[in-house]
């Protein structure tokens, strides 16, 4: 999972994990969210998800939600993570705008 911090480009997995955590979710729910939203195109293995969650927690983009008194650990996006997601959305919007214009012209 290499996220290009400079340009703001995130990997698809990272972006989807951030988006899924606008609502607090545990690991299994994150996996389901991604599968559902991509219609099963993007399937994430539990080991890869675990690694990604740890990396994003270290970066401070997501954090644990509530006390983990309940056995299943839940995660939630942090304000920093939200800022990153918003920036990515902006970048993608710009990109699609440019792409749409060029592709339309080339028709």
């Amino acid at each position: 999972m290499k996220d290009n911090v400079k340009s703001g480009a995130l990997t698809e997995v990272t972006f989807f994990i951030l988006l899924s955590l606008y609502t607090p979710r545990h690991g299994y729910a994150i996996m389901q969210f991604i599968e559902e939203k991509t219609g099963g195109r993007l399937v994430l293995g539990a080991g890869s998800l675990y690694g990604a969650l740890n990396t994003l927690t270290e970066k401070g983009w997501i954090g644990p939600y509530g006390d983990s008194g309940g056995r299943t650990k839940e995660y939630c996006i942090t304000p920093e993570g939200k800022a990153i997601a918003e920036k990515e959305l902006q970048r993608l919007t710009e990109l699609t705008k440019i792409a749409a214009a060029i592709v339309e012209e080339g028709k």
Partner: peptide, 16 residues
């Protein structure tokens, strides 16, 4: 019905 793989992300797989 789906294949059971723990590591699916290429970078994560290489790391493993």
């Amino acid at each position: 019905g789906k294949p059971f793989e723990l590591h699916t992300d290429n970078e994560d797989l290489a790391n493993y």
